[in-house]
């Protein structure tokens, strides 16, 4: 237990901040994922064949390739790609991107593919009459989407989105390979310097369990809130 003391003696404070980092990366990745989903869900539902293919390619490739490979692509390729773009604008120095951004972005792309599938499924299972009725009643586009379609879609999507959140939370452990100090990386450092891997990795497992348990409680509450009136 001494190993968990706060301050210089133990690893308590380090692990606490590492947990906050895991939460921060997960939330950022989830939001980036939503942006990707907002972009690709319309493509997947589009009747245009070309746009449709792009949408399908995104979800198929990302969901069919291991997360670790995607992370390596952005970790090794990210700064190269940005330097290439910068060189077009005449900036030729070395650019290093922040590990937090690379990590959140690569996990975000992965989580976006799952979110896209969830939103597509939710939109498709809304009764067709709702779309038609909203159009016939002459609502403008803003009310049509934000007041009629979105609330119904969220109700159907939230149970599956909580699964996506779980996947995203667990995937963040993989960006420890890029050196970002989150739970896994911190445990690795602590295990290396104290030669007590069994304790620190088990403690990491407990931290993850706590995170998944607490977030499930929160999400279940959200789910009952959104399914009000049904």
């Amino acid at each position: 237990m001494e190993l968990l003391y706060f301050g210089d003696k133990g690893w308590g404070d380090e692990l606490f901040f590492a947990t906050l980092m895991t939460i921060a990366v997960s939330i950022t990745a989830m939001i980036i994922g939503f942006l990707f989903a907002a972009l690709f869900t319309p493509l997947k539902l589009s009747s245009n064949k070309f746009l449709n293919t792009i949408g399908n390619a995104y979800t198929t490739v990302i969901r069919g390739v291991p997360e670790l490979l995607v992370i390596y692509l952005f970790f090794f390729g990210g700064s190269g790609a940005i330097m290439f773009v910068a060189s077009i604008f005449g900036y030729n120095d070395y650019i290093e991107i922040n590990a937090f951004l690379t990590g959140s972005f690569s996990i975000g792309i992965i989580s976006g593919a799952y979110s896209t599938e969830v939103f597509r499924g939710a939109l498709q299972s809304i009764d067709k009459g709702q779309f038609e009725a909203a159009k016939v009643l002459g609502f403008n586009k803003y009310i049509y989407f934000f007041k009629i379609i979105l609330p119904q879609m969220l109700r159907l999507a939230i149970p599956n989105l909580s699964n996506v959140w779980q996947i995203t939370l667990k995937d963040t452990s993989l960006i420890s390979v890029t050196g970002l100090v989150e739970i896994m990386r911190q445990s690795y450092i602590a295990a290396g310097s104290t030669r007590d891997p069994l304790f620190f990795y088990s403690f990491a497992a407990v931290l993850y369990l706590m995170l998944t348990f607490l977030s499930m409680q929160l999400l279940n509450r959200l789910e009952t809130k959104f399914s009000k009136g049904y």
Binding site: D171, P197, L198, S202, Y208, L209
Partner: peptide, 23 residues
């Protein structure tokens, strides 16, 4: 099933590979 589904696979591998050897 709750423990194995609630923790990342990476943690599980590390516990088994790095951790168990300590006993």
């Amino acid at each position: 099933s709750y423990i194995f589904r609630g923790t990342p696979l990476l943690v599980q591998i590390f516990i088994i590979y790095f951790g168990l050897g300590q006993i």
